[in-house]
Amino acid sequence: MTIRQHPTSGGTASPSDGPPLSGTETGGAAANGAASAGTALSDTVPGAAGDGTAGNGAAGNGARPPRLVGEGLTLAYDKRTIAEGLDVAVPDRSFTVIVGPNACGKSTLLRALARILKPAAGTVVLDGERIGAWPAKKLARTLGLLPQSSIAPEGITVADLVARGRYPHQGLLRQWSREDERVVAESMAATGVADLAERAVDELSGGQRQRVWIAMALAQQTPLLLLDEPTTYLDIAHQIEVLDLCADLHESGRTVVAVLHDLNHAARYATHLIALRDGRIAAEGAPGEVVTAELVREVFRLPCRVIEDPETGTPLVVPAARR
């Protein structure tokens, strides 16, 4: 089940135009009922992948080549090596979730995929081109990132913060087009923060704030979106709210990659799961196939049973009793 195929990297024109969102059905658990607003989502789906590579690739059914690939990645901070010789491929149009115990290199991998961390060896390839060779702004129009630590400038309003997501689409003489205005409005509507537009970000609750940051990433209008622990520090209702939002984004045609702590959340929402341990991939594939008691024991050193989630039928990890 560990698919670790090397993609044939070469000018593979990628499929681009997102299919319109077909009546988003948010799972009944949406917390404040804010995560829906599906109609707006379909409009925010970027029309073009990258910058003019709008070639209508053969609409592969399931066999699309992955757009974002890491080959032989060695990741290190200063002298400390986190991972060596890691091969990952993010399937196109997937909701890929990276899980693993603390300090296994999840976030590091995501940072490398987002070009924030330069790999010590190996390359990250996006749409057939080395990610380091992409111009910064062009990359930012293709690959969006919600970092773990972002700082809301003091006193900034929600609308202003979301508007900053338009930066890669702007220029010195093109500072605020009608398009920018429309996308910002849609992004806020899609994340359910439109009502908060003129509020200061500092005043919001954790869940609201996280949705604002996601709205900013959304306003970037990227076909790929990387999220580093989007649910950390949120209570359970807000976690589900944010994850539902991510699922909506995925269904509207985006490729979403997220680092999550909660294995059950990962199993419920992911279409593709990557389990890391000690900087190597322990398992990879659809959650229904990958999440097993053996895997959890191997990756998290946790004895457990895996049962079927009564709500969704996805695997549900239940830690073993103390005896």
């Binding site: 500092d202 609750s205 704030r209 950390t232």
Partner: peptide, 21 residues
């Protein structure tokens, strides 16, 4: 020297609910 001074990650970040209303 890294780490020693504990530049706490996520500390006082806008995304963390540390100053949540």
């Amino acid at each position: 020297r890294p780490r020693r001074l504990g530049t706490r990650r996520r500390a006082s970040t806008g995304a963390a609910p540390e100053v949540a209303a």
